[in-house]
Design a protein around this nucleic acid. Structure first.
Lengths: 223, 223
DNA sequence: GATTGCAAGAATGTCAGACAATCCGCTTGA
DNA sequence: TCAAGCGGATTGTCTGACATTCTTGCAATC
């Protein structure tokens, strides 16, 4: 029996669809950081009413994907390098822990999935689609986080990674970053496959540190 | 010049007031876990309109303080022990890190604040007001998290602690728990005051582990 | 020329009311 | 006893409205 067989079908509400659509739009960089979102425009673009949109915006605000200043409305937050650093640090904390746990508890089945996602990232790394690179890399982490045995770790991590999607997109288009990222991720995979918890932790730490460094470079190059 | 002098006055919107009020209501255990929240009731109780309320509910949903099932509406989630365990584990991860950082960077001024909050908890521990115990203990952590140098660590921690307020309230009314909690917290304080990073980490870890154990006991005793 | 002040327009915050879709509990019938 | 069905309760969503606040362009002033 599949362990996560979920019988419950969840009806899609307009609110949820809207949140998903907007989240994706933010990830793919459709809005400039700092730019404002105009309710009436979004309403017509999405084909929904203002109350529904506003509910969706409140959800995104709580996820910190947008900011809502009273009487000024929603906007895409301009992530300072200071905050980005803080996010990378917490991400390191979580991801290292998850990789370590994962090494000693992942199932062969999921390990295979992890390998497949690594291949997917390898393919994306050779392409020119930087959004695909970010997405496939995110899949790789997702599998690790999903198999660390702690759903909260996974949830918090997802929320944080979402907030730095802007930086990740830019650093992934950096010359050579995708390739070195690939080898770091392979290192993580190998360690997990070998069940070596300590090595997995260390490989994971190195990966996040280098991702942070790459993000900083990409930020300094394009102010 | 005070470092956090913020010129921006922030107008309070109905939405924000509502979120704060509801959050506080949830913390203080006004709603039973699993119980449903009726929009129309809340509207009249809070004296606001349904759209405003629904926006507030979406915020709380994103914070995971309530659940909203499509076509069934909002309810207080019944936190399983499994999820609570996961939260305590991540809390340990964050709090240990924060205490360690705090030990080597807190200012004398903030250290004094920490001492005051410890006294406040001591007073609450001797009283019968278990809500006061939870609140003063939360203040103590807040100061540590606010001085760890990483605002994201603080933010994530606050979100997680909020979700286990139910357990914390119950375990704090446990015979003797407040007193042992006090001595654990004093241990943390002493380590930070001494600038001993390693000891602060260890004391912090012990505290979270014991808090988790107490929560489990309180859960088993009253199903 | 730079700054201030002001007025028109745009955008948000909030509300009231409406209606269909869905869920829940109760009655009814087998 | 159990299934079917019905009615009230509740939610999901929309339309429309209006006061408040922000923005912007322009004129007036120093």
């Amino acid at each position: 029996m599949p362990p996560d067989l979920n019988l419950r079908i969840s009806p899609r509400s307009v609110q949820r669809e809207t949140v998903d659509k907007l989240r994706l739009a933010i990830f793919s960089g459709m809005f400039q950081p700092g730019s404002r979102l105009i309710e009436s425009q979004l309403c017509t673009q999405l084909g929904i009413s203002r109350p529904s949109l506003r509910e969706a915006l409140r959800s995104l605000e709580a996820e910190r994907l947008i900011e809502i200043v009273p009487n000024r409305g929603p906007s895409i937050p301009a992530l300072s390098w200071e905050v980005a650093t803080a996010i990378y640090e917490v991400r390191e904390l979580l991801e290292v822990e998850a990789a370590g746990r994962c090494a000693s508890r992942i199932s062969p089945d999921q390990l295979h999935e992890l390998e497949k996602s690594l291949s997917a990232f390898k393919a994306a790394a050779s392409s020119n689609d930087s959004l695909a690179r970010v997405m496939t890399a995110a899949d790789f982490y997702s599998i690790i986080l999903a198999n660390c045995g702690n759903p909260i770790l996974e949830e918090v991590h997802r929320g944080l990674v979402a907030r730095i999607s802007f930086f990740r997109g830019r650093s992934m288009s950096l010359e050579g970053r995708a390739q070195s990222s690939l080898s770091e991720m392979r290192e993580i995979f190998e360690s997990i496959a070998a069940g070596d918890e300590k090595a997995a932790r260390e490989a994971s730490r190195q990966h996040v540190l280098k991702a942070k460094a790459a993000a900083k470079i990409s930020m300094d190059s394009k102010p």
